[in-house]
Design a protein around this nucleic acid. Structure first.
Length: 575
RNA sequence: CGGGGCGUAGCGCAGUGGUAGCGCACCCGCCUUGGGAGCGGGUGGUCGGCCGUUCGAAUCGGCUCGCCCCGACCA
């Protein structure tokens, strides 16, 4: 490719609305342009990188035995009504009518469509297992699109769906997809980590997220260095601490705490450590009965964990009125003492560590001090219902300690079971001739988000540093001064030799000053730069490695061989 | 949806009531060619939109649209 004939509109200054590095750099370097909030044009460089991500995904999906199809972005409402998601999905689903007044939506995900496809044509256990995938646009009318491609409304996604005869088959398909994901992100040259995750609204009972590790990630990952356990903070479990506080229990006492409601206020007022407080939250379970959830002052209740522990569908904080009815005191003065028999009380592990603690007295402007769990209230249900934090004990190994880091979710794998196949009657006949719903899994990868994540993870003050497998061009030949025949000749030779050997190369043949060319190539982040300058007359060119800044003068004839081996080396997947 | 901020030339910005400006980019010429050069000359804006106040509005008031950030929310 010749730069002078190409379309790479780089900007000297990035638009003010771009804040995170990936957004700023992708716009500045001429990869994307915004059309509307969360909706982008892909410019030639951006498209090339997107295609590289897609091709890696495609190759690995095919290798794993998945088959590619294409499904429509526009989906008739009828299909979504079959699973109930037409009403359940919320405003993220963009709904509209066609000219004859029929309802449609833009697909945010394609379970309904793929199930409809499969149920029409697949009848026998002999046709299973089957894994179908596509790579294409999705639309989600996000509440708040942000960070450029990281959370866009229209975006490209690879979504795969597996169909099996039983759980065991699903295990196998899931494993195949999981392994394919590991290969995909390795091949992309990204530092990533699969973590255990919540299943969320798509349903199912088991899930992994693939996180690209980056400071700017929206997700928090808890992990154990010792055994490798890793989970989204939403999901991360922890092990109960060994009791360590040895302090004599003092007699229970009620004290006046006028207007002191929060952990902050009470601990400051009574001059006690925040973790001595027993924070008490009242939840409504499945819109019915109330539950009291107690945790140490500095802990936060994890509603996912609470929900799972209770075996409930959902929990929500009780209203002020409900709290007052239950405890007889306004919000801020609830506590587990004297509540036995009146409400179900669930204590977090951290409660067991508290000695001579403080709780609300279920009476306006009063707290109890010297509260001792077990003595002053029964601890019947002690569970892990709080968020794990750095320093907590690993749930999977004896002496491991949890640490945290940030990540960007680029892939997600789910086991769905029969959540969609049953209501949509996607069934097969088994060996005995019985009709059974297929067991499904679904597996997504955000293509644009993977590109953005790669930038988040690979940039410096000068611009992007593409991992070789994702670079729009693997190398750039920078012809410093096109008016010098010697330079031009060497540059052209190097360029055609590289393209002849299958290297993705672009030649910067613009009539620009050297400074502009250097800045642009650094900004765009081509992994290897071949600089053809003043030593061209002696047959020498300079090879620069973008990531390290390392430069070396070599005879131009050696250039192709040298670059090819460096590129191959970078593209090799290290197991 | 709650809170905050911003809409003036392609990008970044200045301009608090009196005829719309700067830097970069862009076009022409000269000059220059190893890190976004220099000089000279140019093109380009219904100041997001509508309504109002005023002799006069980018500027004041109301409404509206768009965009960004924080939160809530989210396969």
């Amino acid at each position: 490719m010749r730069w002078s004939h190409y379309y790479i509109p780089t900007l000297r200054e990035a638009p003010r609305d771009a804040e995170v590095p990936s957004h700023r750099l992708l716009v500045k370097a001429g990869f994307i342009r915004k059309v509307a909030s969360g909706i982008y044009d892909g410019l030639p460089l951006g498209l090339r990188t997107i295609r590289k991500v897609e091709n890696i995904i495609r190759e690995e999906m095919n290798r794993a035995g998945a088959v590619e199809v294409s499904m429509p972005l526009t989906i008739p409402a009828d299909l979504w009504k079959e699973t109930g998601r037409w009403d359940a999905y919320g405003k993220e689903l963009l709904r509209f009518k066609d000219r004859s007044d029929r309802w449609f939506c833009l697909g945010p995900t394609h379970e309904e469509v793929v199930v409809d496809l499969v149920r029409k044509d697949v009848r026998s256990y002999r046709d299973l297992p089957l894994i179908i995938y596509q790579i294409g646009p999705k639309f989600r009318d996000e509440i708040r699109p942000r960070f450029g491609l990281m959370r866009a409304r229209e975006f490209s996604m690879k979504d795969a769906y597996s169909f099996d005869v039983d759980e065991k088959g699903l295990e196998d398909s899931y494993r195949r997809m999981f392994d394919a994901y590991v290969r995909i992100f390795k091949r992309c040259g990204l530092e990533f980590q699969p973590v255990e995750a919540e299943t969320g609204a798509i349903g199912g009972h088991f899930s992994h997220e693939f996180m690209v590790i980056a400071e700017t990630g929206e997700d928090l990952i808890m992990y154990c260095q010792k055994c490798g356990y890793a989970a989204n903070r939403e999901r991360a479990e922890r092990r109960r601490e060994n009791a360590s506080v040895h302090e004599e229990q003092r007699p229970l006492e009620k004290v006046h705490t006028p207007g002191k409601r929060t952990v902050e206020e009470v601990s400051a007022f009574l001059k006690v450590d925040k973790n001595r407080l027993l924070k008490t939250l009242i939840y409504k379970v499945d819109s019915g009965s109330l539950v009291m959830a107690v945790t140490a002052g500095l802990r936060e209740i994890n509603e996912n964990k609470l929900t799972r522990f209770l075996g409930a569908e959902r929990v929500e904080l009780a209203t002020a009125e409900e709290i007052e009815n239950l405890t007889g005191a306004p919000v801020g003065f609830a506590g587990p003492v004297n509540m036995e028999g009146k409400v179900r009380i669930v204590c977090d592990y951290s409660v067991a560590e508290v000695v001579n603690g403080v709780t609300g007295a279920n009476e306006e402007d009063h707290h109890f001090v010297n509260v001792n769990p077990g003595r002053d209230f029964a601890v019947k249900e002690l569970a892990d219902i709080a968020f794990a934090v750095s320093g907590d004990r690993c749930p999977r190994c004896e002496n491991g300690v949890l640490m945290e880091k940030r990540g960007i979710e680029v892939g997600h794998t789910f086991k769905l079971g029969t959540k969609y196949s049953e209501p949509m009657e996607c069934c097969f006949l088994d060996e005995e001739g019985n009709s059974r719903p297929m067991i499904m899994g679904c597996y997504g990868i955000g293509v644009g988000r993977t590109m953005a994540a790669a930038v988040e993870q690979n940039h410096d003050k000068d611009g992007i540093i593409w991992p070789v497998p994702l670079a729009p061009f693997e190398a750039v030949v920078i012809l410093l001064n096109p008016t010098y025949p010697a330079q031009r000749e060497v540059a052209e030779k190097v360029y055609s030799s590289l393209s002849g050997e299958g290297v993705d190369v672009i030649i910067d043949d613009r009539n620009e000053r050297p400074g502009v060319k250097f800045k642009d190539s650094d900004l765009i982040g081509f992994p290897f730069h071949v600089i053809v300058g003043r030593k061209a007359s002696e047959g020498m060119v300079e090879v620069k490695v973008r990531r390290t800044g390392e430069r070396q003068d070599i005879p131009f004839q050696e250039c192709t061989l040298r670059l090819k081996s460096m590129i191959e080396n970078e593209k090799t997947v290290r197991e």
